[in-house]
Nucleic acid binder design. Structure first.
Ligand SMILES: NC(=O)c1ccc[n+]([C@@H]2O[C@H](COP(=O)([O-])OP(=O)(O)OC[C@H]3O[C@@H](n4cnc5c(N)ncnc54)[C@H](O)[C@@H]3O)[C@@H](O)[C@H]2O)c1
Ligand SMILES: NC(=O)c1ccc[n+]([C@@H]2O[C@H](COP(=O)([O-])OP(=O)(O)OC[C@H]3O[C@@H](n4cnc5c(N)ncnc54)[C@H](O)[C@@H]3O)[C@@H](O)[C@H]2O)c1
Lengths: 215, 215
DNA sequence: TCATATATGTGAAAAGGTTCACAAGAATAT
DNA sequence: ATATTCTTGTGAACCTTTTCACATATATGA
């Protein structure tokens, strides 16, 4: 268990390193320097080395990092060297897109349960999964040993469903609805907010923005 | 033109304030304190006041901020008090979901052009927009006066299409493909990376993470 | 009119995150 | 063997962001 407190930015960059390493592996690189890794994800070599140093010493001086080995280490740090059982609530536009996305499963996020409140959808088979009735959310989340819930429901019902999800003992939620959900402090809650990124672009264009620090 | 350099975090929080203010307006609030605004978006009152202070003085001591007025001010700062002409490339799973999403248009992001390379899709009418051939990307982006391009194509072709988009004079790109795109320094490029958020949840669960600073 | 309560706006302090710079380890060439 | 080159790992310096704390301004009630 990581006892040092790691910043969110570092964790996000681990995802980037993982992605870059996957590509490097495909390109048959044996080793990679912090310089090359940094270049591929628009970061600095010092940043790469500092981030990795929080978790151990993975490199060889004069040579760099072993690609396969480091990739494996990062997947272990991120906890994606295993399968996570994920449920998705709201099989609408965005929900359907997420279910169809094969990369999630490849990274260990396996969507094994779908929920909706639309009678036309309930019971139907969607990409090999039968859509469950939202009325049975709590019991079925428990029975299926779900660990992560993805919310793709209208903003108006998101809080209500969240309360149910929390009651089912779920500790991690990814929310696509543009609303700030109230959850107990021991729940990990993340938001996917696409409007925010569009609004950033809008701001940047209008103000000719030069960020103080780069993303 | 904002000459002071504003941090990305501040801009992202402006989006949150805007969202909260929209709701407050619906709830018929006349004024709102930094305290209430902070509570609704899980921030601190000082943070709210500091952020707003970068752009002017909008509040009244002893009373708070006028909801309608502040909302309007923020929409002007973010540049969403106007219509942006957006094109979307790749009308697949996620692309279709984005086109169907009415909130974008309500916030001024109007998707007016769709592109794909699939012959079965080209020429067909999708939510009132005829899908164009990717072969005509550059000319049609220019002719339609597109200002923002959303990329929802496979990662393998994303860089290639980006080069075209840049050649068409587009200055703002929102990319959904999990790949770091190379663009000239005067282009605003943002990434929507859903795996990253899932991986954060995974990390948090595995490591019992307490972030150093909250999101 | 005055007292009290409320809440902003903002310098200054504190906390956090990034970059620098270099000692030290390892590979490679001579 | 030794020199040279390369590149890591990491304290310390630097820069950015957040939080604190309070002077200041307004509203409200007596
Ligand atoms: N579509 C997008 O591109 C997009 C982009 C950003 C954010 N979002 C957000 O994602 C969420 C879903 O958007 P969407 O476009 O997929 O909407 P949608 O209407 O297509 O899908 C919502 C789904 O949720 C189901 N649902 C409604 N109430 C429910 C309930 N009480 N219990 C269970 N299921 C319920 C509906 O039957 C539907 O299948 C919304 O909050 C939206 O704001 C969507
Ligand atoms: N579906 C998801 O939930 C999801 C989640 C995260 C990221 N993404 C990313 O979003 C992108 C799209 O994903 P998707 O699931 O919608 O895939 P998809 O295959 O359903 O859609 C891709 C679309 O792009 C079109 N396309 C392919 N090559 C093209 C080209 N050269 N020019 C123009 N159009 C072209 C295809 O015809 C198709 O319509 C991918 O990069 C994916 O990694 C998707």
């Amino acid at each position: 268990m990581t006892r040092k407190r790691i910043s969110e930015s570092t964790i996000h960059r681990l995802s980037l390193y993982y992605r870059a390493l996957s590509l490097l592996e495909k390109e048959n690189y044996e080793t990679v320097s912090s310089k090359e890794l940094a270049k591929r994800e628009k970061l600095t070599p010092a940043q790469v080395r500092k981030d990795l140093s929080f978790f151990g010493t993975f490199g060889t001086r004069g040579l760099g990092y072993p690609v396969r080995e480091l990739k494996h280490q990062i997947s272990s740090i991120l906890g994606i060297d295993r399968v996570w059982r994920v449920a998705l609530v709201g099989v609408g536009n965005i929900g359907s897109a997420l279910v169809s996305y094969k990369e999630f499963a490849k990274q260990g996020f396996q969507i094994v349960k779908l929920f909706d409140n639309d009678q036309r959808k309930i019971g139907s088979n969607h990409k090999g999964i039968v859509i469950s009735d939202i009325a049975n959310l709590e019991t079925e989340l428990r029975e299926a040993n779900i660990e992560i819930v993805v919310l793709a429901v209208p903003a108006t019902v998101a809080q209500y469903i969240t309360d149910d999800v929390v009651r089912a003992g779920i500790k991690a939620i990814l929310n696509f609805a543009p609303v700030n959900l109230k959850v107990p402090p021991d729940i990990y809650l993340r938001h996917e907010n696409m409007s925010m990124e569009l609004e950033y672009l809008s701001f940047a264009l209008v103000n000719n923005h030069v960020p103080k620090r780069n993303s």
